[in-house]
């Protein structure tokens, strides 16, 4: 691996910008994601910033059950992100459908719609768990996954 590739990889691991998307959850996971970004847990120390536009983001953080209505829009947001891009499923609903699993209007988990890199289970997951998920994603990146 050349020095340029190593530099790019180094930069990619140290500056993952996230885009937070709620597919119709109960907002518990969203509050935990916010807790990760605010002073107590502050993930800017890893270079993680919350971005508003999918064109600027590297990691799509999805919370909530993926309803059939939102799936199309979620896909469109995913396609708008520039490569390389990663997807994190945060919370039981995004991982498997949660308590809505089997309902007529809900996909059984985010991986039915998008390729998922990291699953963070919990209802809602603790901020520590979300940070752990991010670190696992970065480790996966480092190993060239």
């Amino acid at each position: 691996m050349g020095i340029l590739d190593r530099m790019v990889k180094w930069a990619r691991i140290r500056s993952p910008w996230i885009l937070h998307f709620n597919t119709g959850g109960c907002n518990a996971c969203d509050i935990e994601v916010l807790a990760v970004l605010t002073p107590r847990f502050d993930v800017e120390r890893f270079g993680i910033l919350l971005k508003g536009s999918p064109r600027h983001a590297d990691v799509l953080v999805v919370t909530g059950p993926v309803t059939r209505q939102v799936a199309k829009r979620l896909k469109r947001i995913y396609y708008q992100m520039p490569e390389p891009k990663f997807v994190m499923a945060v919370g039981a609903c995004a991982v498997s459908g949660g308590v809505f699993r089997g309902a007529y209007n809900v996909h059984m988990g985010l991986d039915q719609v998008l390729p998922v890199d990291v699953y963070v289970p919990g209802c809602p997951p603790k901020p520590e768990a979300i940070i752990d998920g991010v670190v696992k994603l970065l480790k996966k990146l480092e190993e060239g996954g």
Binding site: A11, R14, S15
Partner: peptide
């Protein structure tokens, strides 16, 4: 610097 390098290496849409 890491932010800039990462953005330079990303897909340009």
């Amino acid at each position: 610097i890491a932010d800039i390098i990462k953005l330079l290496a990303k897909e340009d849409i």
